[in-house]
Design a binder for these strands. Structure first.
Lengths: 130, 130
DNA sequence: ATCCATACTTACCCAAAGGAGAGTGACATG
DNA sequence: CATGTCACTCTCCTTTGGGTAAGTATGGAT
């Protein structure tokens, strides 16, 4: 078949870098991580249960997992106070805060566009039904 | 127990808005959606298979699902050319491009911080093992 | 008549995400 | 001695994500 003119699909410049960046984004662009960053950015240092309450609707299991992963990625600092009952506090590191800042654009975008998204969804629904 | 001084956990200003923004973010902060936005932002108008090739590693099923969802949210425009074999092209809408721009910050952040993340992970691993 | 290309669906299946709820440790308080 | 506190951890279970492979529709090419 005679190929119609199309984009040549140029192979990307640095596939290795590309891969790494994607891996980071997949990891970091997770629902709970984003919400945790938001509440920690907004409220500063918080203890375990406070983070959970502020996020809302997250199970202890996922909260632990999310915070641990963030800690291992260097996004949060975890401080254990050796008291009984235990007291553990979490706060964003500089890197965590900078990620929060980067996400801020997405947050603002979501706020600004929710009406248009609603409208688009409604239009799509009506366009789909006979 | 005498409560130590803590943040009063101020209830957030607008829970309804907050909820909507979160819903949008959950939806949009999806791996395939982000990658689709990236390739469409970078290459302009593309047909179905091209999008799939450029994203890489995505199944037809997920590609269809992702693109349909993006269409319903008003992020992409889907143009069906009535020819045989079928030819369908996708391109970002203005809203899709603006979301791409918002994500750009995250992308750049990931590029800039991958070394520090690697280092943090390694340090965490060593700190965890006896 | 058969094959091909494209953009899908559909059916089936597995693995991972994630919720619910109970259990734990260590001490302070009633 | 029983109870409560906090930050988990563990187990069981359901839901979702997502892959594979096959099927569909259509007309042009061979």
């Amino acid at each position: 078949m005679a190929e119609p003119a199309r984009h040549p699909i140029p192979e990307n410049l640095d596939p290795a870098l590309e891969m790494l960046v994607r891996e980071i984004i997949e990891r970091v662009a997770d629902k709970w991580t984003m919400l945790a960053i938001e509440v920690l950015d907004e409220h500063g240092r918080l203890r375990f249960t406070q983070v959970g309450e502020l996020i809302g609707g997250i199970s202890q299991k996922m909260l632990t997992k999310t915070l641990r992963q963030m800690e291992s990625d260097g996004l949060v600092l975890r401080t254990i106070h050796p008291v009984i009952p235990p007291r553990v506090e979490y706060e964003l590191t500089d890197m965590g805060r900078s990620l929060g800042a980067a996400f801020c654009g997405v947050w603002i975008w979501a706020e600004e566009h929710r009406d248009r998204i609603e409208a688009a969804r409604k239009a799509f629904r009506e366009r789909s039904l006979p």
